[in-house]
């Protein structure tokens, strides 16, 4: 889901950085100091998840953990995504530093949307609705993240539209996998650590 260096135009890269700066700054402002450790913990999981590849059809992919980040961190998700993506770019050469802004907006923005759309439903309903909502959140997180990635590509170069469309379509299996994973995670956390599903407290 990471956009690599060399694909985005300078105006799109600048817009990405501008939006990411706003998202991360506001996220940090809204997050209570007590929640920072949880942000670091989930950010670490996101950082490490990129190393575990799952074979899907002819290719391989890895869990994006966009929905768990949104559900567990709320507004704390964009700073967590930014820090993890920065370290992935520096230590593993995934994505890149110039495209860090655009990648942060894609994944951090998707996590934030998951929190806004599904956070309350996942927390406050019975187990059946929670499970369905968690599955939908997981699938939605992936598709929104990859949709925004495709949008960045098309905004940079209209001729990349078929490639962007292919990128979105190829992530459908991951959306299903991530939906199932998120549903299991929510059921597990509800049983064992229900408080964790409360997002990082906001100021």
């Amino acid at each position: 889901m990471h956009i690599s260096e060399g694909f985005l135009s300078v105006p799109v890269l600048s817009a990405g950085w501008l939006l990411a700066a706003g998202e991360v700054a506001y996220g940090l402002k809204k997050t209570e100091p007590e929640g920072i450790v949880r942000v670091a913990m989930i950010s670490s999981a996101f950082f490490l998840a990129s190393l575990i590849n799952i074979r899907v059809g002819p290719g391989a992919t890895h869990l994006s953990l966009i929905a768990p980040m949104g559900l567990l961190l709320g507004w704390g998700a964009p700073p967590a995504v930014f820090a993890a993506l920065f370290l992935q770019a520096v230590l593993f050469q995934f994505g890149g530093l110039a495209v860090l802004g655009a990648n942060t907006v894609s994944m951090g923005g998707a996590a934030l949307c998951v929190y806004i759309l599904f956070g309350k439903i996942v927390r406050d309903n019975n187990r059946g609705i929670q499970t369905i909502a968690a599955f939908a959140a997981g699938a939605f997180g992936v598709m929104m993240g990859v949709g925004m990635t495709g949008l960045w590509l098309v905004l940079s170069d209209r001729s990349l539209f078929p490639a962007a469309w292919l990128l979105v379509a190829s992530h459908l299996p991951l959306a299903v996998i991530e939906g199932i994973f998120t549903a299991f995670l929510v059921i597990f956390l509800k049983r064992t650590f229900p408080d964790v599903l409360e997002p990082v407290r906001l100021k």
Partner: peptide, 13 residues
């Protein structure tokens, strides 16, 4: 590198 990354994240926090 993975351990370094996790360590950096907690240090940033």
């Amino acid at each position: 590198r993975a351990l370094l990354g996790v360590s950096v994240l907690f240090n940033i926090a």
